[in-house]
């Protein structure tokens, strides 16, 4: 412990300290401050870059999500259109098949009618022939052509009536 007043030491302290400030300011604090500032700038720019990268990544994620959403919508649309198209095709096919069936039925009906008519004509001829033969044998006379046809018509009419009666 030294409590004696020593102005010389006090002055030396001031001189030494002033000199130390001058020397350190030149050789230490200024370069150190520059280094610290450079590092601070580097850290700041790294943080900025990281932030920009994060924003970019977030943007990309959002873009991807948007693209995914659009793709999903597109897919749904395509599937829906496919369904619609298949429905249309099915409807058309059904319609065409209906039309063809109707045409075939119509054709068949016409064919039947034609055949029926033909059969009736044949039947009529046969009946007329039979009537002529029967009348020749029964009454010994020849009937004229007109009479034959009349008899045949009457026979056919009877046949038709009996058929209608059976049906009803």
């Amino acid at each position: 412990m030294d409590l004696n007043l020593d102005i010389g030491l006090l002055i030396w302290t001031l001189i030494t300290f002033a000199g130390l400030i001058a020397v350190l300011s030149r050789f230490a604090w200024k370069p150190l401050r520059r280094l610290l500032d450079e590092r601070q700038d580097m850290i700041s720019s790294s943080i900025e870059e990281a932030r920009a990268g994060r924003d970019e990544a977030r943007k990309l994620v959002l873009e991807n999500e948007e693209k995914m959403r659009q793709a999903r919508e597109e897919m749904h649309k395509i599937v829906e259109e496919g369904h619609k198209l298949s429905e249309e095709i099915r409807g058309e096919a059904r319609e065409k098949a209906g039309e063809r069936t109707a045409a075939m039925i119509e054709e068949a009906r016409r064919e039947i009618e034609r055949e029926t008519k033909k059969s009736l004509e044949e039947l009529k001829a046969t009946v007329a022939g039979l009537a002529v033969r029967v009348s020749r044998q029964v009454i010994g006379e020849n009937l004229d052509e007109k009479r034959h046809e009349q008899i045949a018509d009457e026979f056919i009419e009877k046949l038709r009536k009996s058929r209608d009666n059976k049906r009803s």
Partner: peptide, 30 residues
């Protein structure tokens, strides 16, 4: 005023020199 160089003044200078060397050693290299 007695401005003689005493052991305390030398210790003071030693303190200054050590401070300077430490600071310069810490600040060298970029």
């Amino acid at each position: 005023i007695d401005l003689s160089i005493t052991n305390e003044v030398v210790l003071l200078w030693l303190g200054a020199i050590v401070t300077f060397l430490l600071a310069v050693a810490a600040c060298r290299g970029r």
